[in-house]
Design a protein around this nucleic acid. Structure first.
Lengths: 335, 335
DNA sequence: TTGTAAGCGTTATCAA
DNA sequence: TTGATAACGCTTACAA
């Protein structure tokens, strides 16, 4: 910028005014400055800019588990897009591995002075965040799941997990099923709520809670779900239907059923590509990941622009049931 | 940092030395400084740090088309992971829309002084990049496709598109097919190479080039591929097999075949989730997106660490054929 | 071993 | 309308 000033024969302040269109500059000098900028190939350094007091970095941090999961990828896509429209760039950080990775990633992002954070939290404890948020004054929005810490009152955008699971289970009940298993991926917030919706639907239908029909997996991978499905379907008194809490467990059910050459009524939580092309098209309760990411980014940008304090807002997005076939299979003639 | 210095009763330089472990500091003062850091909750400002001469921002830029595409998502995941291990953060930018979006996004990233760029280019022209790279001295690595510009000699990581397509087509030939259609998504570099491999395989088998068997789509969406497949299979002399150049066109073929209740031998380029769970499991040529992202990030970090100049390196990753059923279907008894 | 000061690229204030 | 200057938070060369 100094080079531009020298070349145009003006002061630094004038160059700044031309670039930002602030203050008043005679058209003549402005033209000279623009020419110099062109010749030198000058580009404003946003890093230096955000060093000034009262300026933020115009950069958001996005922390999530694994971009390979299409659900997270959609959140990221939407957040990046919304941020971009507002002139914000996005630092994407993944914390797939150990629990400590999440807080390390956040420290890293804060060190780069992000103006705000969208966090899709894993299972780790977020009490450290409370301390951070007081100190740093960086707004945080949680997406898909709330923070796992007591006094953390942040904005949060969730899907209607319990409602969706309730609807899925009701759907199976409406098709005559009485023994409905639930395949629960490890204790993330979401799966817990989904289990709740499942239980409520059974209770409301006057069915007893058969705890051996609820399988809580130790890991949420496809193979684990497949193994559990094998055991369920091979048991003495197998369920006639399965409610599966994530798209990965749903995939596991499909694999097991295929291997056993055995049909089973199925409703899964979360939609996935090609669900309608499978031998029995898969009925799902679909939550809108794109909307989740979009709303999270919007809330965050609002906070950054507006006042930082004020109570945490909670947005719950509706989910929708997509009937494709697997959820409409009747139970076998007699059980 | 000044506050820390004041509190610890030392100079700024001493604080810096303690933080970075550079120079020599008596254990006694160091302890005082660390205490002050803890009490104040001080965190180094990486932005300010990278303002100093000789320091880079320890941030990479990643520009790609659409995170919703699992292939891109895998590239991003790998790049973020590799970068993270080296202490680099990643600014992710998507340029899905119009052609201008790509260059705008790059300007944006350069303004934030990224230390290097991984670009998965769309169709836009990259001649502007040549100018940029001279001026900015920012290393660039292209992933999945090279730049579409003449004098741009950058590092690039590619899959063996032509070889893979050649192999896919040979596979269909080996199973007795003589009329093999090719479904080509719009003129990205990759699909062009894949078409080339297809043609070469036919030529080597002594088959004539039947241009009505090659359908180049105007858009690469699933629906377009489904429509084209409809027309192909409904024609007077339909092909007995299809080679599909992307996972989206492959999905289109599957949709059309399903709707027509008609089987067709199929080998697709690029693997996708649940390909093995479909009614006829889909044979694919799989390229390794994770490795693509990893190598791109590695090459970039090398450039950043080492000398910037030197000829562009070209890494071509092998692809592998995964036979699952659809590619092994025989042609109908008589054509 | 430690403190001081200059400079990185901005922008805002102030004076001319 | 314009230019000089201070300040943002850091590192490093130099001096003490």
């Amino acid at each position: 910028m100094r080079d531009v000033a020298t070349r145009a024969g003006v002061g630094l302040g004038t160059v700044s005014r031309v670039i930002n269109g602030t203050g008043s500059v005679s058209e003549e000098t402005a033209e000279r400055v623009r020419a110099a900028i062109g010749e030198i190939g000058f580009r404003r350094n946003e890093l230096a800019r955000s060093l000034r007091p009262g300026q933020n970095s115009r950069t958001l941090g996005l922390l999530l588990g694994d971009l390979t999961n299409p659900f997270y990828a959609s959140i990221a896509k939407a957040a990046v897009e919304i941020a971009g429209r507002a002139g914000y760039a996005v630092l994407v950080s993944t914390a797939d591995e150990d629990p400590g990775a999440e807080s390390r990633a956040i420290e890293e992002l804060l060190g780069r002075r992000v103006a705000g954070l969208v966090i899709v939290p894993g299972q780790s404890d977020h009490s450290y965040l409370e301390r951070l948020m007081r100190h740093e004054q960086v707004p945080v929005v949680f997406a898909d799941r709330p923070a796992t810490a007591a006094g953390l009152d942040t904005d949060v955008v969730l899907a209607d997990n319990e409602g969706g699971a309730h609807r899925a289970t009701q759907h199976l009940l409406a098709h005559g099923h009485r023994r409905i298993a639930a395949l629960v991926a490890p204790s993330y917030y979401t799966t817990g709520r989904r289990l709740r919706g499942y239980r409520r639907a059974l209770r409301e239908a006057g069915l007893p809670a058969e705890e051996n029909l609820v399988v809580t997996l130790r890991r949420g991978a496809t193979e684990d779900a497949a193994g559990a499905t094998h055991r369920l379907l091979g048991s003495a008194n197998p369920p006639s239907a399965v409610f599966s809490t994530t798209s990965f467990t749903t995939e596991g059910v499909l694999r097991a059923a295929r291997q056993l050459r055995r049909g089973v009524a199925l409703v899964g939580f979360d939609d996935f590509r090609m669900a309608d092309l499978l031998p029995v098209p898969v009925t799902v309760v679909a939550s809108d990941a794109v909307e989740l990411g979009r709303r999270a980014a919007e809330l965050l940008l609002e906070r950054i622009g507006g006042q930082q304090d004020g109570p945490g807002r909670r947005v719950v997005l509706p989910v929708r049931l997509v009937a494709r076939g697997s959820g409409e299979l009747p139970p076998p003639g007699r059980q």
